[in-house]
Structures are given as structure tokens and as C-alpha cells.
């Protein structure tokens, strides 16, 4: 898929663990893992909003478009 999820990079920058972020965002660690590994087929705006809020970043810092 040409959409790359850079969530793990942002999490490393903010030094936050998956479990902490999942708890703060209100999703399961399994779902966060799906998102991090790029297996997710869609992201709700509400989830993206909470992730950006917790990581203090923009959606573009997490999602990237790369032409195949």
C-alpha cells in the first residue's frame, strides 16, 4: 500500500511505549500493533485525532504517501 505509517518513529521520538499510547488513545494494544505494522485498512479521524493529541504531532508526521 502506498500509505506508510510512521507511528513507531513518532513513538520513539516521544519515548512512549505501545501500551502507554494504547491506553491513552483508548484502543487495544493489538489494534495499535495493526496500525504500526501497516496492516490497518482505515483509520478513524477520532483515533487519529487522539494519537496526534497524545504524541503532539500532525497527521502528516504519522502517515506518509509513497508512490509505488
Amino acid at each position: 500500500m502506498p500509505i506508510i505509517v510512521n507511528l513507531d518513529v513518532m513513538m520513539a521520538k516521544r519515548k512512549i511505549s505501545s501500551q502507554d499510547l494504547a491506553e491513552k488513545v483508548g484502543i487495544t494494544t493489538a489494534n495499535l500493533s495493526i496500525l504500526k505494522t501497516g496492516k490497518a485498512k482505515a483509520v478513524r479521524f477520532s483515533t487519529l485525532e487522539r494519537i496526534c493529541d497524545e504524541l503532539d504531532c500532525q497527521p502528516g508526521d504519522i502517515l506518509e504517501f509513497k508512490r509505488e
Binding site: 484502543i27 489494534n31 495493526i34 490497518a40 485498512k41 482505515a42 483509520v43 478513524r44 483515533t47
Partner: peptide
């Protein structure tokens, strides 16, 4: 269903 399951 698969799309729904993988919507985070």
C-alpha cells in the same frame, strides 16, 4: 467485514 475489522 475484513475492512471493518482492520479499521482502527
Amino acid at each position: 467485514k475484513s475492512e471493518n475489522d482492520f479499521t482502527i
